[in-house]
Design a protein around this nucleic acid. Structure first.
Lengths: 328, 328
DNA sequence: TTGTAAGCGTTATCAC
DNA sequence: GTGATAACGCTTACAA
């Protein structure tokens, strides 16, 4: 617990000189600077963040705001934290599962006047309402995955369309003829990629409509168990909305005695941990979670520094990567 | 951005009176108090944490220190954060996967002089070294799962022994005769419960020795694939070290064409998300992750308030819960 | 090149 | 009941 005052006393100069010596903040005699630094090092000096924060009227806190938390978010946090720490910020985190409490939570976040805010997909309050409040308070923010936003939201997104597009082409190259999409037909990002690929292949889309609400595993499972009642021909490959739905679908196939991938190949989306622990292990379109966090942190840093918005806007879209395992 | 000064100006009294009115910190005229509070509310007053922190020489920050991060930790964080926030603290988080950087990380954590520290199982530096440094700095801490600690470490643990014990009895009650343990033979917590249950059942233990290092899925899988070479009789049930190993083992059984649970029942440990997404879904001994976080937060709060250590020590052990699904 | 002093917003002491 | 005023540790304009 060493302070500037003590270093000043120990080195026989004033606080001002010590501050200058440590901070490169002006001309100091070389020998003096060296001596001060040695003493500071020996005493284990660390600036008091509260004092600095008060004096500069500047926060060093970046708050991560999250609703539900999944291991997908963990990767983003792992990407965010080191980059921000390196830049002199510390990262705090607030959770709120209760939608009714989201409003008061975002208020308390703003009241803390953080240097920046990172928004992980949040259930309670919509992203639009949150961003509106942040903008009004002039707090820099970065959102992750703002597909559903109505207003302009600075965010790191992933190119789901392209990811699915590539997965479908992969399935086709593997000789799959009847490739279905399992998920809500109105998911414009993923479905867009599916349709684009099928159009290119001159094939007709096959939809297993499934709501993303509720238990995705059970939804996927039910879709598989209903396969026998399908009037049309059976598919020989399925691109699922996400890994959970894919795993549910696979479970249904097992139940029916159908082999994966021999009878039906399955591709998931996200590359959750569970995708690599199933049997067979799931081929899936991976989100580059950690990289998403890193890129988000870098954008947020630039916004916090007050840099001008680049001509293309702050938002970025990152590519996915197809992870091939046994299921397809 | 309202400050005491402005509230004082608006209400026609001094800063001191405003502070007293808002903080219950002394005698204030009822009407004055009411008026001040109204104005403060209208102006949206929020105390400046940096100033308060500086003045009181007290931090309001609790730092979560983590090495690798899994969804098991997510539950603990979800338990910790609301409790600490409610008590006026904010929760920040630091990660470090690199073992070589763990040393400097823990230094920077201590240098920040947080009000408290929560230790999630950390890879780099051992728990003993970290706790030693925290004790020396007189920073209150709580650890999660300090089984491997050599010194006395205040921690929230779970009763793995009892959890496995109950799982084995459950398997026996289901009619399983040859119940094996898959994992390192020297894992004293879980193996202890296994042995206790088998002794009670008058049966001989069967061990499939498997290292917890490396890829647990592959380790479990290899154990299953080696089953055919087992000289002794085949087991009809397996308690695995954890869910990942259990899922790997199950994958090996599928590969061999053996049905789960008909041929061999499997019980995991942890209740990761993946346990409920497999086929068949995994029966497992669940860690009460969120509750672990809540209890940890409560202990940490008491330590931070300077309460005396209770006669039994700070540490607590929480019970597990057997989640029965299709695999056993 | 170095030092003095003011001030960030809050809390606490002490006198009125 | 109320109000000056000092102090927490740091940064910085200004003076020496």
């Amino acid at each position: 617990m060493a302070y500037l005052k003590e270093i000043a006393a120990a080195s026989g100069c004033s606080i001002r000189t010590v501050a200058r010596a440590l901070a490169d903040g002006g001309p100091v005699d070389g020998a003096t600077r060296e001596k001060v630094r040695q003493i500071a090092g020996r005493l284990g000096y660390q600036p008091n963040l509260a004092a600095r924060s008060l004096r500069l009227s500047k926060s060093f806190e970046v708050i991560i705001v999250a609703g539900a938390m999944t291991e997908l978010h963990v990767g983003k946090i792992e990407g965010l934290e080191p980059v921000l720490r390196e830049a002199g910020y510390f990262v705090s985190i607030v959770f709120e599962r209760e939608p009714t409490k989201a409003e008061s939570l975002i208020h308390s976040v703003i009241d803390r006047r953080p240097a920046g805010v990172a928004l992980l997909p949040t259930l309670g309050l919509g992203i639009d309402a949150i961003v509106e409040r942040l903008d009004k308070s002039k707090i820099p923010y970065i959102a992750f995955d703002a597909r559903h936003a109505k207003r302009q939201v600075d965010a790191v997104n992933i190119d789901r369309q392209q990811g699915v597009y590539e997965a479908i082409l992969y399935l086709a190259a593997k000789g799959r003829k009847r490739i279905a999409f399992l998920g809500p037909r109105n998911d414009m990002t993923r479905v867009g990629g599916y349709q684009r690929a099928l159009a290119q292949l001159h094939r007709k889309p096959i939809f297993f409509d499934a709501s993303p609400q509720g238990d995705a595993y059970m939804t996927g499972r039910a879709a598989a168990l209903n396969l026998s009642q399908t009037k049309s021909q059976m598919p020989d490959a399925v691109q699922a909305l996400n890994d959970v739905m894919a795993l549910g679908f696979m479970s249904g196939l097992h139940q029916l005695g159908l082999n994966v991938p021999e009878s039906i190949a399955i591709v998931g989306f996200d590359d959750r941990l569970s995708a690599s622990l199933s049997w067979p292990r799931l081929t899936t379109v991976a989100q580059p979670s950690v990289e998403i966090g890193v890129v988000g942190a870098e954008i947020l840093l630039r916004k916090m520094r007050g840099e001008r918005m680049p001509s293309g806007g702050w938002s970025q879209s990152l590519p996915t990567r197809l992870i091939t395992r046994e299921s397809a």
